[in-house]
Amino acid sequence: MDTPFIPGPQQRKAQAIFSQAIEILITAVVKAMGYSAIVFVIMIFYFLMSEGIAAVGEVPLSVLFSARWYPIEGYYGILPLIGGSLLVTVGATLFAVPIGLATAIYISEIAPRWMREVLKPIIEILAGLPSVVLGFIGIIALAPQLRVLLDLPTGLTALAGSILLGLIAIPTIVSVAEDALDSVPRSYRDAALAIGATRWQTIMRVTLPAARSGVLTGVMLGVGRAIGETMTVMMVTGNAPVMVRSLSAILMPTRTMTATIAAEMGEVAKGSVHYHVLFLIGVILFLISLIVNIIASAMVFRVKKRAERILS
């Protein structure tokens, strides 16, 4: 009977100290992990800045913001690259958002259960497809088709990039938006149907607005993925840093910021002007995705605040 069933006062005190110590330790570890995300982001930004900021001193701003990218001869105009990225991203968004939302609505609101069970895993597989594979399909299948169909000199255009980036964004949009639609309480749909709304009216006027913040998050995450994507666009957009001057640029080869970094970083001399400019492009890319994310969370936040205001 060395260990009594009921702990004595001495033992209880020891246990209390021990559990308190564990509590403090776990809190500290979790806190550190939480902060580490912020630290990493700041470190990445610092790394990019430390290499990229030099470019601003080495290259005059008038050259940096010119329309010609030809680093071998000292032309470091990054506007065509920014334009290329925007063009491809906007194209991808226009392609992916309607299809993604329609798919999400179909899966969550219209499809019978067995169909839902088939579709959801397929979409998730699509999300896991390596972008190189998509780029490969783009080169082999999509680009030649586009060339013949639209009678172009080459099928490797911004349009091909947009379509493939759209395919990358769609699974993200679908699965996040579908989750949001799915979490709208059934009572909302019942109430709308009971006062004589058609199924379409219920979806468009009740379910979709109720799921707005989640749907928006899905769209933003999808667009974010499209902006940062490198491999696919490098393979299918033709990689010609041409200034975007009109809408017809969508049918011409273009080059994005990500593709430029990926293609040229391997061959550039470390510490050279070209090297620094590539880092500067990285900084700009970083800022753009930061802005997109801030806009997204601000929109979600505003929607939430409005809902809370009404509910309070």
Partner: peptide
Amino acid sequence: RRKVGMVFARPVVLP
């Protein structure tokens, strides 16, 4: 459904 109105257990007011 316009001829048959319905009220549910939990009030569902629209926003």
